[in-house]
Design a protein around this nucleic acid. Structure first.
Lengths: 335, 335
DNA sequence: AAAGATTGATATATCGTTATATCAATTGTC
DNA sequence: GACAATTGATATAACGATATATCAATCTTT
């Protein structure tokens, strides 16, 4: 009703008590008689009082605001990771706000600095490709508990990842078992750690089975990029009968390319994706893929961050989740 | 190197000057000799000093932290809106952090309260379905400049929307011109404002052309939901030859359903989407849709918020962007 | 009934900034 | 050379909360 926004002081005045008393009532600490408690609560409700965490965190040092820095929030896999992490953290009374530097290292730098300026209490982070080590120093200097995921950039930082090599080895073996002899690897930005690991698994199986050197095509991470890459692959290597993809988005794009070229995914050419995003099961034909439980991954992330916040001296935690082959319609024996 | 994190005081000590002097140097205000300026900058760089905006905003009242509350960040249309708004705001020195209440009104309430607690300087917001009016009062009490978009819930709040009725009228007319007589409307959560407006445009054209009462099927907003809804529609109304969809995700799901039933979208049944997300042009067959420029929409949003922040007494601003019909492969004459 | 323990509240200092006022030293004016 | 204006810095208070110490009033204990 009246002027300025509600503060402890304005509530204290209305309730006829001191500021610290109101503070204690709001937080449920200290000794307060039931009578004054009611008076204070009433005044607070009346003014729609909401405590100012900036002031609180400055004084108390505690900060229940977490940042989540992830590239490409529109990727459904990422969205699921976010959802898992946020649910857990919110249930513990933290607020999670999301930043998306869109894999631009400069923008990421700016955002992380803003992040520090605004005094966050913790960070969940997929580092952009080419993140310089100084960025970690900066976070450490300002004492921000950090967990990276998907991309491991620093050995001194808690991390949650995927058993990438294991997963692509499973995928490649499966295709080889079906009888495929020319198996390509499609997609992923050239520099990413994740892609490097996945290609290792793919190449290990090729080598082990004597299927010759790999055919490896990088691409962006969306459907359009996957489609373009597959178009190019069909021209450059018409003998390929199976493709392991760096992600479901790329795989779905590749399927579109095949359909446009009159090739039925799963009959003419087999395609395996990675992630098991929702589209993978909805698409026609439904996508065979290496499924990761992104929600679980998000929860694990959040749990490690909470542990780190509560036990700062804990040794570095690293946790890898594995992926599971889900066979749908885009894989079959070679023609 | 040393203990605690860098502050104005620690920098001042190292540079041998007072705290206000350092503050002035960091902000480029006041009168400072070049000599002390250099001393201070050096000390600040040496300690990797980053100002604490919490303290700054408390004292100065200025707050360059903006919240963006949007449901379903994984929807590519939303992701583009976000990108447009964030780019503009960041270029003006604001930090934007994203919250996703996933259309849950309770979660939204909790998040907005946390939002206020943490003292944000502005809000871009797609209100969840069923947002109670008290939520607006709360924001007003705490003096947070707010712009809603897509869903208009309060007449007293700045807003950016889409000319929904106009767009679906265009889509429906186009289908009628092609010769369709049984045109259904598919998708959208029952309660949303957006859907209501879109159905108005659809029904207006049906009435005007004497095409009888509409056939209206609600559904969720993702592909799976669109697929299920189309499955049901095929059973319930086998005479339908064209479908106007509430969004591209629903439309793409509907196409999957048609393909699975052996019907070619654009030949057997025509489908028009809404939004023009990236998938719309990549999909096979490519989707005819009502295109909105989400990036523009995001920028407009940001601009209005900035105006509101700078001119709090400005009259309520409402801006509607129009959508454009993009004909691709999922529409054609009825069989 | 005197001494100590408990209860319910408050006074004060502090977190890291910025706004305002003040102040000494230098410069300019006539 | 006296007085005002400017320069370059600092002292102080405030933002809104919390931590710590303190304190009067009440309750135990023997």
């Amino acid at each position: 009703m009246s002027a300025g926004k509600p503060t402890l002081a304005s509530v204290a005045k209305e309730a006829g008590v001191s500021v610290p008393t109101v503070s204690q009532v709001m937080r449920g600490t200290g000794r307060i008689s039931e009578e004054t408690r009611q008076k204070v609560l009433e005044a607070a409700a009346n003014q729609r009082y909401v405590p100012d965490s900036r002031a609180a965190s400055m004084r108390s040092g505690e900060n229940r605001e977490i940042g989540l820095v992830i590239n490409q929030i529109s990727n459904p896999f990422n969205a699921e990771v976010i959802s898992g992490a946020v649910s857990l953290l919110e249930s513990e009374g933290y607020m999670v706000s999301i930043l998306d530097p869109r894999d631009d290292q400069v923008r990421q730098g700016r955002q992380l600095e803003a992040f520090i300026r605004h005094g966050r209490g913790g960070l969940l982070w997929v580092p952009a490709v080419d993140t310089p080590p100084e960025t970690f120093d900066l976070l450490r200097t300002h004492g921000i508990p950090t967990v990276t995921f998907l991309r491991r950039v620093s050995r001194n930082c808690d991390h949650v990842g995927i058993r990438n090599a294991e997963a692509t080895a499973t995928a490649t073996s499966y295709l080889a078992d079906l009888g495929h002899r020319r198996i390509a690897y499609l997609g992923g930005s050239l520099m990413t750690y994740v892609r490097k690991e996945r290609i290792e698994g793919y190449e290990a199986v090729l080598a082990q089975r004597g299927l010759g050197p790999g055919i490896i095509w990088p691409s962006g991470d969306d459907k359009r990029a996957g489609m373009d890459a597959m178009d190019a692959l069909l021209v450059g290597h018409p003998d390929v009968t199976a493709v392991v993809c760096n992600g479901d988005m790329v795989a779905l794009g590749a399927c579109y390319s095949l359909i446009r070229s009159g090739i039925q995914p799963g009959q003419g050419v087999s395609v395996i994706g990675f992630d098991d995003i929702e589209d993978a099961s909805v698409a026609v034909p439904a996508l065979t893929t290496m499924a990761v439980r992104p929600n679980k991954l998000g929860q694990k992330l959040a749990q490690i961050l909470l542990d780190r916040i509560r036990t700062p001296d804990m040794p570095v935690m690293v946790s890898d989740v594995s992926a599971e082959l889900i066979v749908r319609e885009t894989t079959g024996a070679p023609p």
